[in-house]
């Protein structure tokens, strides 16, 4: 097994955005059960070091494939089409305006201490994001349109950050 093989190869999965989460989970656990440092606690130094490297590698790969945004970014990276995070100036005006409206709603709800409103915003955002991920799946796996896929990924980077901020606001209200 090549240590530097890509994440999909590591788990013997087809290189695609749509993946079977249960299969990924199963393969992750099967490999981790072989390489984890707990399996080598009584072994020699060389084996312990190797085990640490492999277990780290397998965790990294799993993290990259488990969630849709890093998975899409990773697929674009493999295709030589890295998503520049600094490219936000290229976002269309309507998307940016929509973002500002969302942020306003979040900070208003936060200031007013309306936890239910924040939770409502969380769910609304989440369902909108799931549709966008379906679209990315079509662009990457069916159409092979890397340009468009990268554009959608950049938008989702905004939305994931927004979701994180909503959760942060909910946590702040609980404290």
């Amino acid at each position: 097994m090549d240590f530097s093989a890509d994440h999909f190869t590591l788990f013997s999965l087809p290189r695609a955005f749509r993946l079977d989460a249960a299969t990924l989970d199963r393969k992750y656990r099967e490999i981790q059960a072989q390489v984890h440092p707990d399996k080598f606690a009584h072994a020699g130094d060389a084996e312990r070091r190797l085990s640490l490297q492999w277990a780290t590698r397998v965790n990294e790969a799993y993290q990259a494939l488990k969630k849709p945004l890093p998975r899409a970014q990773y697929l674009l990276h493999l295709a030589g089409h890295d998503v520049g995070a600094e490219n936000n100036t290229a976002m269309p005006a309507d998307f940016l305006i929509e973002q500002m409206e969302w942020r306003e709603a979040v900070s208003e709800a936060r200031a007013a201490g309306e936890q239910h409103e924040l939770e409502h915003l969380h769910h609304r955002l989440k369902s909108g994001m799931s549709e966008r991920y379906d679209e990315i799946g079509e662009l990457l796996d069916d159409a092979g349109d890397l340009e468009q896929a990268a554009d959608r990924v950049r938008r989702l980077m905004f939305l994931e950050k927004l979701l994180f901020e909503i959760d942060d606001a909910i946590a702040a209200l609980e404290e």
Binding site: M1, F11, S12, K27, E30, I31, A33, Q34, V35, A43, G44, D45, A46, E47, L50, S51, W54
Partner: peptide
């Protein structure tokens, strides 16, 4: 002994992963 078994350790790890897959 550690030095003599270094490559062996790597091959064993490799075998384990292949077997898992």
């Amino acid at each position: 002994l550690e030095a003599e078994t270094k490559d062996f350790a790597a091959r064993r790890m490799d075998k384990s992963i292949r077997r898992a897959l």
